[in-house]
Design a protein around this nucleic acid. Structure first.
Lengths: 348, 348
DNA sequence: ATGAAAGCGCTAACAC
DNA sequence: GTGTTAGCGCTTTCAT
């Protein structure tokens, strides 16, 4: 056993060969006799040699690492995505490294800076504050797949969920089951900007339009961040202001959870008095009281699509982030999971 | 604007100086006239130069990155820890990079391998499958703080939660409030091995011992992984087998959530028929029906302690993972948060 | 105040 | 089959 950090030249010396031969053996390249190979491997084991990945990367570029740059890890969404991506990456010989941007502009710019991104062979980035121009300007040098609702047209492969369609499905379900005054928990006026809340709010409106049911704007309750707390407070606010409703579409399951608790607190029964639908299909939804009807975004397919797009570019040896011409925009659709929080049979 | 990757020598050429001068200016080192500095900065801006962190690291070692190696990111625990550590790291000029080990032995060994760990200036590692010997044998070359319940005696700084004490407090609370047959959801027989479930189970037993209440072993229900589903199924199993109980201590809030749902399904009222306590103080607990009494592990203090220990060693320039002699073992205690799922007043 | 030389640990390209 | 040379992009040292 040697003390200090063992490098290739130490192994070479020990085995009585050149560093090049050690490199070849260690990397499983052909062109070394069985005898030499054995001697090298033996020396490696004896000295406890471990390759210096930094040096290797400076030389060849390959690191085997894929960066996943997300705003935060609260809630099951990104956690689950990370797990799926990691599994997929492993099966292709890569591993996933996760970085939090903190959902701030500065954090996002930091995370996508070339210094920080260069060690990765490709990155999956979910921007929430910055836009296409910023991402292009950052000058990322590796393949990028963008994630999420913001339209970053034309420059990068982009995987997004069909938020509008999913929300429309959710609200149509409520309308079909007889709800006529549907609260939108965490809703936003349509500012024209694409974001998760504005898109899901847009689906809420289009479902109403299709059904010919007018929207009472007082039912649209904004929420800061779609947490359980926010959902709770939104319903409480409606109740305090005496605004009645017989349905509620919460922009996230977390918010729906808070809404359920608030409804219980004010004595409204779900689904008899108010029917509730969430969005995300969090694992907990199945165990809430009552069990929550929700939209399932099929995150697994999404993860597969992402990894497929990214590795295609990585393995094609693409460089220079912004892809040329043949950019893919994949929209994944969501399906409804009906549970106790909405009525079993269609009314009307 | 230049095409391709711009390096220091390009900037040097453009500014008409040597690379050394560029290096000095870019890194804010003294020893460059105002005039030169301006010319260099101008060239940097014009060419869009970004430093190559890999090359720099090969030369000097510093990367500014702290690795957080965790089994998974499901649930709020590690997500919240990551956020706290990241904030603390930023205030000290570092950033946190998260890696999932997948809670497998292989994944953990992979993650702590010198190749993978060398880019970090220090790592926070939460092992669940491997033990001290493995971690030592891995030959990590940077400071390490270990996290979690497994005792990895003597070799590394180690921050752990007082699982036994916390569980004892939770169960004592139930006993004080009149519960006499307390189900242990996710409990384990004490195998002598230290793990979250065995430690919390130990607290369950010691609370009973202190109160002089015997434990009915049929109330100890194992669960695979302490999820909502597991909690639900554990209670259902007790009910099917006709085992009655008037209290339940779930090893995690997630499991408690499933237990609450199961109790509702079998027609038992909480807290009147069964009092329930969880562990972890997840944000959702406050909005469950009924609101959940739980143990708050004070993760923020824990994160502070971890970062403090790690950066102390990093900034002391320590190398060679296993610290010499002066190893710190910090045990953080948990406090109880009383809510609706247990009775308001002490009985008996 | 600035620059030239050497080298961090590794590997591509080319000898032999 | 194996070794030599050169160099990835940066910084340390020492000269000027």
């Amino acid at each position: 056993m040697m003390v200090g950090v063992v490098k290739m030249s130490d192994v070479a010396h020990e085995a009585g060969v050149s560093t090049m031969t050690v490199s070849n053996v260690v990397n499983g390249r052909p062109g070394a006799s069985e005898d030499t190979r054995a001697r090298v491997l033996d020396a490696v084991a004896r000295l406890g040699y471990r390759m210096n990945a930094t040096a290797r990367q400076l030389r060849v570029g390959r690191s085997g690492a894929i960066g996943l740059l997300v705003p935060h890890l609260d809630g099951p969404y990104y956690a689950h995505l990370a797990a799926r991506l990691d599994t997929l990456a492993h099966s292709r010989g890569y591993h996933v490294i996760i970085e939090r941007t903190g959902a701030s502009r500065e954090g996002e710019l930091d995370a996508i800076s070339p210094e920080r991104v260069r060690p990765y062979e490709g990155v999956v980035f979910s921007p929430v504050q910055i836009d296409t121009a910023d991402v292009r300007a950052a000058g990322i040098e590796v393949p990028v797949v963008l994630l999420g609702e913001r339209r970053l047209a034309g420059s990068f492969d982009h995987v997004m969920m069909d938020n509008v369609g999913g929300a429309e499905l959710a609200v149509s379900h409520l309308l079909e089951h007889g709800a006529r005054r549907i609260a939108l928990i965490g809703g936003r006026p349509d500012t024209g900007v694409d974001s998760m809340p504005t898109l899901r709010s847009r689906g809420y409106r289009s479902a109403h339009a299709k059904a010919g049911v007018p929207v009472d704007e007082r039912l649209v309750v904004d929420a800061a961040s779609f947490t359980t707390k926010d959902g709770y407070e939104a319903v409480m606010r409606l109740h305090r202001e005496g605004i009645t409703f017989d349905g509620a579409f919460a922009l996230t399951d977390a918010a729906a959870m808070g809404a359920l608790r608030a409804l219980a607190d004010v004595g409204l029964r779900v689904p008899q008095d108010v029917q509730v639908v969430g969005f995300d299909n969090d694992a907990e939804g199945e165990y809430l009281i009552p069990r929550l009807t929700t939209m399932d975004p099929d995150n697994d397919s999404m993860a597969e699509r992402i990894m497929e797009l990214l590795l295609a570019r990585v393995e094609a040896g693409e460089t220079g982030g912004a892809a040329a011409g043949d950019v893919v925009e994949a929209v994944m659709s969501a399906r409804i999971v009906v549970r106790e929080s909405t009525l079993a049979h269609t009314s009307g």
